[in-house]
Design a protein around this nucleic acid. Sequence first.
DNA 1: ACACTCGGTGTATGACATACACAGATTCGC
DNA 2: GCGAATCTGTGTATGTCATACACCGAGTGT
Lengths: 259, 259
Amino acid sequence: MAETTETGLPRAVAIAWGMQEVPQRGPNRGLSHERIVAAAIEIADAQGLSAVTMQAVATSLGFTTMSLYRYVSGKDELLRLMQDAAIAVPEKVSLPGDWREALRVWAGLVRDAFRGHPWVLGIPRGQVSVLMPNSVRVADLGLAALRDLPLDDEEKIGVILTVSQYVTSTVELELSLADEGTVAVTQEGLDLLGQVVTPDRYPHLAPVLMAGNYLETQPVAPGADEGIDTEYEFGLELIISGLEQRVRGEPARGAGDIA
Amino acid sequence: MAETTETGLPRAVAIAWGMQEVPQRGPNRGLSHERIVAAAIEIADAQGLSAVTMQAVATSLGFTTMSLYRYVSGKDELLRLMQDAAIAVPEKVSLPGDWREALRVWAGLVRDAFRGHPWVLGIPRGQVSVLMPNSVRVADLGLAALRDLPLDDEEKIGVILTVSQYVTSTVELELSLADEGTVAVTQEGLDLLGQVVTPDRYPHLAPVLMAGNYLETQPVAPGADEGIDTEYEFGLELIISGLEQRVRGEPARGAGDIA
DNA sequence: ACACTCGGTGTATGACATACACAGATTCGC
DNA sequence: GCGAATCTGTGTATGTCATACACCGAGTGT
């Protein structure tokens, strides 16, 4: 993790917060971090993360590949900037007073953010990520949602962490299922699988699998898979009601000490 | 998603289940899928996923790069085989009768599996992944744990999905924090961040950040970060007690329809 | 005016995945 | 047992990427 010169902050963090001193003595700059990141995001949105190459970004801006390196130290840094820039949350957010409702709204914000730029999930989150502007914003909103909850700060952080992990996992699942509406296995393949996934070896799963309740053998119409939404809510409500019970004075099994 | 010739199964699935007919007419094979995957896993364990190149795997086996392509159609297929082979679960697993306890044990199994080979998290999970042997095994065990729970199959699938998502997210978090014990930001950097993360812009997070409760500025001794464990249990108990409340007859907000 | 610094560019390098064609081995049909 | 078909392992070649390096010319501070 490259530290920015002088200050004790990673370069990507400094750049994202606009704390990177702009050089004075050279020619005028033809590009900016913002334009580069925006171009990269546009490519990722259109053609996926794998299409984001230094060359693609540069030529889409009308510059040469190497010019980008005057702004970012390498591709990793660019990816980190994209990762944060892509999950912007609306300027104005009004959270309901009730923490349950507020948490649902907040989770929805996070979910929408990731669903809007699903490739973000393909970029590993590091220690640096949480220091980026939008991550900070989201975390702040999350704490705001839990304002009235009788938990200490560390526990609240634990909660928003758990929820956001859950949300992103759900989006990831949704993606892997959608995947161009492709189907991994046909009915014929399923039958074949039945030869090895036998009820005696997998007593609990085999029946479900054979009944066709475990995976699709038909292409899912895009958007028509409302199962995802109900699944999402199912899990979220699980967490919320668990939390409800927790603050109601249930014996605490674990208190979060978050790093 | 390459389908296996003839059958309606993806090649990786057929291979993993040993359903790939072995050719008869050629010279004897010097390698096997098992050996290749094992070698690749060994490299990943030792030097991370990025060190797994076709060349590295091949030379570690004393063969040339291209020889691997006689066994796997490409790197993707190899990765998928690794992904499944690495998360093996003990042969004999005894799950407690009480579903709460059983679910804890099951979650622990999943957690241990991923912690043993953390690089697995770096391989995207696709539709194919759930059809691989160990995934099937884990799913079966999950359903076994929930045996006595008054939910239908689809809901149970939803539960084990939620739990395994949660567990993997936790492991991922743990990793990003550990990351060689590196610290992303020094105390000096934290002070600098205070110039932009101000209490008026981030009223809820800023105090937490400045208090040092949001991230570490000291290297975490490996293994000494017990905060992770309590955090893990915290979230898991959240889900479990949510589930408890759910089956106790709470109004269902969502019923899972899992693909 | 001069030296210093910086931006954009061209070229070069090295890592990787993978296509292709070849030579020898093995087995099948007869 | 023999020839054809098929498969294995290999060497070579290609295309994609990220990125190091050195150059030129544009601005800036003195």
